[in-house]
Amino acid sequence: MITALRTPEERFANLPDFDFPVAYVDDLPGYEGLRIARVDAGPVDADRVFLCLHGEPSWSFLYRKMIPVFLESGARVVAPDLLGFGRSDKPAQQSDYSFTFHRNYLIALVERLDLKHVTLVVQDWGGLLGLTLPLAPGFDERIERLIVMNTGIGTGASPGPGFMAWKNYALSTPDLPIGALIARGTPHLTPAEIAAYDAPYPDASYKAGAQVFPALVPVEPDMEGADIGREAAKFWSERWPGKTFMAIGAADPVLGPPAMERLQKLIRGCPEPMVIPDGGHFVQEWGEPIARAAIAAFGGK
């Protein structure tokens, strides 16, 4: 039985530019009793669905500049909050968090909503998890297009010193300054936007996921998730039939141009990326032009 904390709703009052419909589910198979939140906007019967997956330590608020553009195209947008983040419940123990726990949650949610004609939109942990989803039974038919930003596939390869420094800092800092960390590479954030990134966490007890997530990245061959990461790499390089749009925040010191250029070469048919010269790791904060360029590259919808 997982003990989880629930952020009071009043913490999410008056979020800047984030007045989108929110839906909850608390009976996903294997996750009964854990309340999971998602933005779910646009027509339920739309021809296309943009599935927007955030990373760590952010939440679906990160997509607020891209969601309106996707909605303008007539699509449905689903942007879930990972367990431990945003409006979703937050398991209290670091041991509750694992690669498989979160991957299976995303699979269960997509199956519950029966999402089809999906454009997968990923960054950071959204990519580590999301880029493995086509390996779930039937998901290669659900996912038709990809928008990929500042992320990677966890195959067990050794990371650089920048990532290791981040992992060690997160594990040793119980009360992570979430908003300040995101603002460090995103200097144009307003105080209200910084506060919105802090909103899910009334105190340090809510931050177990934010603390432990960097340590869960499959950076050694025998770590959980590395096997399926290697399978996913083969899928994207050998079997991916869909269209891809890549955007790179060039100022990201860990998952910037070198890492993304390697990913571009891996993804079958991936065209030259859109580069945001001053874009940091949380490149969705430059997201409106990225979303518009992606839709144009996909033919206008």
Rank of each mutant, 00 (worst) to 15 (best):
L34K: 08
L62A: 14
S60F: 03
G86A: 07
F163K: 03
G156S: 12
G127D: 07
I36F: 14
V78Q: 01
P80N: 10
A46F: 01
R35I: 01
A108M: 01
G30N: 09
Y97Q: 12
D124G: 08
P214H: 09
R11T: 02
K90E: 08
V275H: 00
A165P: 00
N168M: 15
R239M: 14
A199V: 04
E231I: 02
P29W: 00
I182V: 15
T132W: 06
V148L: 06
E9Q: 14
A294I: 06
L34H: 13
L82H: 14
T155H: 04
V283A: 03
A46K: 05
E72F: 05
P174A: 13
R103A: 13
P218C: 07
I194T: 13
T132G: 02
R87W: 05
T173C: 11
T186R: 00
L135C: 02
I147D: 01
L146D: 02
P8C: 04
G138P: 12
L5Q: 07
V77Y: 03
T3L: 14
V49R: 05
V39L: 08
H188M: 01
Q284T: 05
A75S: 15
D96R: 04
A204Y: 03
L51R: 07
S73G: 10
N150L: 12
T151D: 06
M149V: 00
K116W: 05
R142E: 00
C270H: 03
E261K: 15
A232G: 11
A294C: 13
V212L: 04
A23G: 00
I276M: 12
P273R: 07
R230H: 05
L128D: 06
P191Y: 11
